[in-house]
Design a protein around this nucleic acid. Structure first.
Length: 262
DNA sequence: GCTCATGTTCCCCT
DNA sequence: CAGGGGAACATGAG
């Protein structure tokens, strides 16, 4: 589930249920998701502390508890959930118990996990080099970030060092809505291409962030990805798939490849 | 048994 | 150095 809109949803959940609340205790059913700490260390750092204002950068979620900040990355299958009963889910890996409920880091595949940072420097070392957040990125910054790259547009959009927050599904969605070929050279985009890409990207992000997920609705590519033969929601033409940067890309040849073939 | 999966990282080529 | 392909990570689902 987790690309920028999903993580923004987790941030809102954390803010709504966690901010201002005190940690009673921390339980770690699966210590393997803790990357630079252990259950004891995490418990010592959080117990008795109140959550301050959580923040998000790209697909990273930061939960500051006084001088310690918990960093979450959700990989491909992670989520942050709020539970008020004791019901345990087999994929619950870390439970932060507050007075009126628990925040749980739930993740099937454990491709990423949870880190603990004690200052901004440490947090930034853990998150690595990230470009500006995709949400609210200006047209100018988009052009500047994409202009210097020689790779294919879709690979560049998914590169977190260029822009932070876009994954496979969002990138396909944005490129399809903007009628751009994922294989276009990033630095050869024309100014009108960039205008359109920027407008579409911000609209897709705004609408997805509002919901906390990419709407699998009519008129969105996300709604047809899983169809038997997926068809373009705009023109009905069968979508074509290809591998870009190790992931499956879906595109509509008539809409996105101009008049060419490919 | 096989393939594929909303992410990232590392290794090896070109 | 910049990109691309492929594998690996852990765990399913179909």
């Amino acid at each position: 589930v987790p690309e920028l809109p999903d993580v923004e949803g987790f941030r809102r959940l954390l803010e709504k249920h966690g901010t201002g609340h005190r940690v009673q205790r921390v339980e770690v059913p699966d210590p393997a998701v803790l990357h630079n700490t252990n259950p004891q260390g995490l418990g010592r750092s959080l117990r008795g502390r109140r959550l301050d204002e959580p923040s998000r950068h790209g697909k990273w979620l930061r939960a500051p508890f006084g001088t310690s900040t918990v960093l979450f990355h959700f990989g491909m299958t992670g989520a942050l959930v709020w539970v008020t009963n004791e019901e345990f889910h087999p994929h619950d890996r870390v439970c932060i118990v507050l007075d009126d409920g628990e925040l749980r880091y739930r993740d099937q595949r454990k491709l990423k996990g949870v880190w603990l940072a004690h200052d901004d420097r440490e947090a930034s070392d853990i998150m690595g080099s990230l470009g500006p957040d995709a949400l609210g990125l200006s047209r100018q910054d988009l052009g500047d970030r994409l202009g210097g790259r020689r790779g294919r547009l879709k690979a560049v959009l998914m590169d977190q060092e260029v822009i932070a927050g876009l994954g496979n599904i969002l990138s396909d969605e944005i490129l399809w809505q903007a009628r751009l070929d994922p294989s276009t050279s990033s630095r050869e985009l024309t100014s009108p291409d960039l205008d359109r890409l920027h407008r579409v990207m911000q609209r897709v992000l705004r609408e997805s962030v509002k919901l906390g997920f990419i709407p699998p609705e009519p008129g969105w590519l996300a709604g047809v990805r899983d169809a038997d033969p997926p068809r373009c929601p705009r023109c009905g033409y069968p979508l074509r798939s290809q591998r870009i940067a190790g992931r499956t890309s879906w595109l509509c040849p008539p809409c996105q490849l101009g008049s060419g073939d490919r």
